[in-house]
Nucleic acid binder design. Structure first.
Length: 298
DNA sequence: AACTCAACTGCCGGTAATCT
DNA sequence: AGATTACCGGCAGTTGAGTT
């Protein structure tokens, strides 16, 4: 647990125990633990530690996820490590690309985030254990969600804690999104109050209050990623005021990189609903491109 | 006064254990 | 055997703290 924390993945002890049981028994529930021998547990412990190390390294280096805050569930790390283990940590370029794709889609759609998460984890472990391959766990995603592409409608009513929002961060970040004033690339690990990442309401809450319900105000289509200082300097200014000031200095790029439409007719409170719909379309398109690219061998 | 964020609380949707 | 209950991770709304 300490080793993982040092690597930036501070996980609850329960996850490590679940990881151990998964490696020993091929499933994640604790009901049979009493029948395991000390030898089985010791061997499993060594194996599951390697699995966790693989998961962390894969996330950091292959997926560019450097924090569990960007994961919709820590269970993903168990599956990821187990997949590596089952392949003997010998992955072809295709394996690696498929595994990255699986991880990102499972994370974005919330594979383990809708109740009965252990049942779903067991499904994946079982398929991996039977050497059905990464193809098989991609297939379970298709069974669970239908199509793996993202429709704009799925994004509606989601807030900052949604898994889609985490993937938005990854996609925008990969496409070079930067703070609108400092031009510092967005990152979860910036130090200091000035640069520490905040979730900025493009239409500030203050000007929407009374006109729209909180769920509409806090929709991820109204949220963007900028540093704390820039966010505070914008405060409750209406977008039709502050957008032009930023565009004068930085051009349209800061907005394009975060899928934010800049047409002036969309920037009034009256057009807010339309603004959300427009941005949702742009975000869905960007996420789909991001996920598709993740499956390409590079 | 405006913002974010963390903590708290109750709910959801399944399985597994327990009760009748 | 069938019904009920406990459990669990994650989600979402609320509230108060902290910052500028």
């Amino acid at each position: 647990q300490e080793e993982c924390t040092e690597a930036g993945f501070d996980l609850e002890l329960g996850i490590h125990v679940k990881n151990l049981i998964s490696f020993v028994t091929g499933q994640s529930r604790f009901k049979t633990v009493g029948r395991l021998t000390i030898e089985q547990l010791q061997k499993g412990w060594d194996e599951c530690k390697d699995g966790m190390r693989f998961a962390i390294n894969f996330l950091k280096s292959n997926v560019r996820i450097d924090s569990p805050a960007l994961l919709s569930s820590p269970f993903l790390m168990i599956s990821l490590g187990y997949a590596g283990h089952q392949l003997g940590y010998k992955l072809s370029p295709q394996h690696a690309a498929d595994l990255r794709y699986w991880l990102l889609v499972a994370n974005t759609k919330g594979r383990y985030s809708r109740g009965s998460s252990e049942t779903l984890l067991d499904q994946d472990l079982n398929r991996l254990r039977n050497d059905n391959g990464i193809e098989a766990i991609i297939e379970t995603l298709r069974l669970q969600f239908g199509k793996l592409e993202i429709e704009p409608g799925e994004l509606e009513g989601r807030n900052a804690r949604s898994a889609y929002f985490k993937t938005m961060f990854l996609a925008f970040s990969q496409d070079g999104a930067k703070d609108w004033v400092s031009n510092l690339a967005i990152s979860l690990s910036h130090k200091g109050k000035q640069h520490h990442l905040q979730f900025h309401h493009i239409f500030p809450r203050a000007i929407l209050k009374g006109h729209f319900r909180p769920v509409v105000i806090n929709d991820i289509a109204n949220l963007s990623f900028i540093g704390g200082k820039t966010n505070r300097s914008i405060s409750s200014k209406s977008p039709h005021i502050y957008f032009s000031q930023i565009i004068d200095k930085q051009g349209e790029k800061p907005f394009i990189s975060q899928c934010i439409p800049t047409a002036t007719e969309l920037l009034t409170v009256e057009a807010y609903t339309q603004f959300l719909a427009e941005r949702r379309n742009l975000i869905a398109e960007r996420l789909n491109n991001f996920l598709e690219d993740s499956r390409k061998i590079n």
